[in-house]
Amino acid sequence: MSNMGFYVSPEQLMLDRANYAKKGIARGKSVTVVSYKDGILLCAQNPSSTLHKISEIYDRIAFAGVGKYSEFDQLRIAGVRHADLKGYSYSRDDVDARGLANIYAQHLSQVFIHDHKPMEVELVVVEVKADQTNDEIFHVLYEGSVNDEQNFAALGGEAEQVRDHLANNFKPNLDLKSAIALSTEALEAQIASSDFENSNSEQANPVETTNSSSPKIQVGDLEAAVLERNKEGRVFQRLTDEELANYLT
């Protein structure tokens, strides 16, 4: 990074980079992960039905990313390649979420320190296990730190409200319908708070605030997929708009 010969303290450099990455990530909508009785549910607010935030990596492993699409999609592709190569050279049982989360972390920290700019992404790598208490949720941040989350996770710019909502309402052994309800409510909490911020900053437009009922996510704006706990082989399954509409009524 060019500093034109002036001294920049390492603290300042790291802070600038972190702020740059955070800003990029904050532009995107959040993703939720919720472990439930029969699997793990991943939900994202995503109006596009073709540019996915949630994807399959391997038999029991899924991936979700927020931030800059081109960057997390590049990491998704690398993850699928890593998993398929590992499964081919060893065995399908040897591919695990922890290993993948670690090499993502390595790569992100390498880029954060050495490249021209940090990656504006936040990822989650999840693996469904036979027993709900053993489900693995790894949350990887833009600078390469890894958090091992229990039961649920939220990522994205407004993740704090979403995470708070999940933390206050999560129960073990939810069924899929309740898990979807919990996830969409958490995502809606985020919209509500960001709308609140907007209405505060844009006081020239007070008409918007008269609509006080909490905003609902439309089925078409929701992307959802599950890793099914009790199936064999490739257990990743996207939920169609029809299925989602049924669960949300």
Binding site: Q74, L75, A78, G79, R81, H82, L85, K86, G99, I103, Y104, Q106, H107
Partner: peptide, 8 residues
């Protein structure tokens, strides 16, 4: 194993 990334 490192992350299999490629240039375009």
């Amino acid at each position: 194993m490192s992350l299999p990334l490629f240039s375009p």
